[in-house]
Structures are given as structure tokens and as C-alpha cells.
Simulated scan of single mutants.
Amino acid sequence: MKNLTRTSSSTVQTIVSTAIIAAMYVAVTMIIQPIAYGPIQVRLSEMFNYLVLFKKRYIWGVTLGVFLSNFMSPTWTLDVPIGTVSTLIVLFFILWLAKFTKDMRIKFVIMGVIFALSMFTVAGELYIAFKTPFWISYLTIGIGEALSMAIGGMIMYAANKRLDFANMKL
């Protein structure tokens, strides 16, 4: 019975942490909604991607947050499936890459660069939906993502010093 209680408690904690992270992602995206979508975008909520470096189970909260936020996108019919799956794939890829270094600062840089490079998916969506020039969109969205990840990375790195995300009961 004791083992069953521990398992159900762990399950509840995972569900709650997933919901909290998703809600934070959606809330920050809603606050910055005018600049969170389109050919020039800075989605500061992307900073929550860094949580995955501390606990891999946070991948589900971040992905759910992206899924829900993408319903507000002008290209939501493309953004919901493509953006969500792209985020999940990139996060799993980064988790794999992160195994090769212990230095959290290097992990943050790797994540920021990979996410900026992955913005070809959003540029593709905009090309399909609005015929915006792919390469120009890729450049502007990539720069916006790099900016989001750089600012968000500094915030999350500093927050981790105070909160210790790896050991936090979230």
C-alpha cells in the first residue's frame, strides 16, 4: 500500500507540475501576444524550454503550453500541430545533446542556438499560409527566437540560482 501511495503521489505531482508550466507558458504568451506571432516575433515564454534541462519530465508542461498558446496564432491550423511537434522533437534532441556536457551554461547556449535554428518550421508555416518570403521570415523569426532564448536564458539561469529547479517541488 505504501508503494501505491508513493506512485499516486508522484503521478499527481507530475500532472500538477505539467499544468503549472503550461499555464505559465500560456500566460506569458498572452501578455506579449502582439509580438508572439507572425513574421517578426519575440516569444519570451520560450524561456520555459530551459526547465527541461533541470527535469526532463517538464518537457510535457512546456509542450502543452506551446500547444495551447498556438491556438491563438493567426496560423493556428498549421501552428498547433507543426509547432507543437517541432517543440517536442527539439526538446528531446536537446535532452540527448545535453548528456555530452555537465556545464549548465553550455547547455543553455546549445538550447538557444538549436531553438533559433529550428524556426524554419514557423517560416514554412507563414510561407504556406500567407506566402511570406521563406528566407526573410526564417531570418527574422530566428533572430526573434535567439533574442527570446537569450533574454529568457538569463532570467531562467538567475532564477535557478535562487530556486534550484532541479530540486524544486514543482
Rank of each mutant, 00 (worst) to 15 (best):
M1Q: 14
T5R: 13
T5G: 09
T5Y: 15
R6W: 04
R6D: 15
S8V: 10
S10G: 11
I15G: 07
I15W: 01
I15H: 07
I15R: 02
I15M: 13
V16L: 15
V16D: 08
V16W: 05
S17G: 09
A19P: 01
I21C: 00
A23R: 04
M24R: 00
M24E: 09
Y25S: 03
V26Q: 04
V26K: 01
A27E: 04
A27Y: 05
V28E: 04
V28A: 03
M30A: 12
I31R: 10
I31C: 10
Q33T: 12
Q33E: 13
P34C: 08
A36N: 08
A36P: 03
Y37K: 03
Y37E: 04
Y37F: 14
G38H: 08
Q41S: 14
V42M: 14
R43S: 02
R43N: 07
R43W: 01
F48E: 04
N49M: 08
Y50R: 10
L51N: 04
L53C: 00
K55H: 06
K56W: 12
Y58V: 00
T63H: 08
T63P: 04
L64P: 06
F67E: 05
F67C: 15
S69L: 06
N70G: 10
N70K: 13
N70F: 08
M72Y: 12
S73G: 03
P74W: 07
T75P: 00
D79I: 06
D79S: 11
D79M: 07
P81M: 13
T84P: 10
V85Q: 07
V85S: 07
S86E: 12
L88R: 06
L88Q: 05
V90S: 12
V90Y: 13
L91A: 02
L91Y: 02
L91K: 01
F93Q: 01
F93C: 12
I94P: 01
L95E: 12
L97K: 05
K99Y: 00
F100V: 03
K102E: 15
M104V: 13
M104L: 14
R105Q: 14
I106A: 11
K107P: 02
I110N: 08
I110V: 15
G112L: 00
V113L: 15
F115P: 00
A116E: 08
L117G: 14
S118D: 14
S118M: 10
M119N: 11
M119I: 07
F120E: 01
T121A: 13
T121D: 11
V122E: 04
E125V: 13
L126Y: 14
A129P: 05
F130C: 05
T132E: 12
P133T: 12
I136M: 12
S137H: 06
Y138T: 07
L139I: 14
T140A: 06
T140D: 09
I141G: 02
G142F: 03
I143E: 03
E145P: 02
E145Y: 07
A146M: 11
L147V: 15
G152V: 07
I155H: 03
Y157L: 12
Y157E: 05
A158C: 09
N160W: 02
K161P: 03
R162W: 12
L163I: 13
L163F: 15
F165K: 09
N167I: 08
N167Y: 10
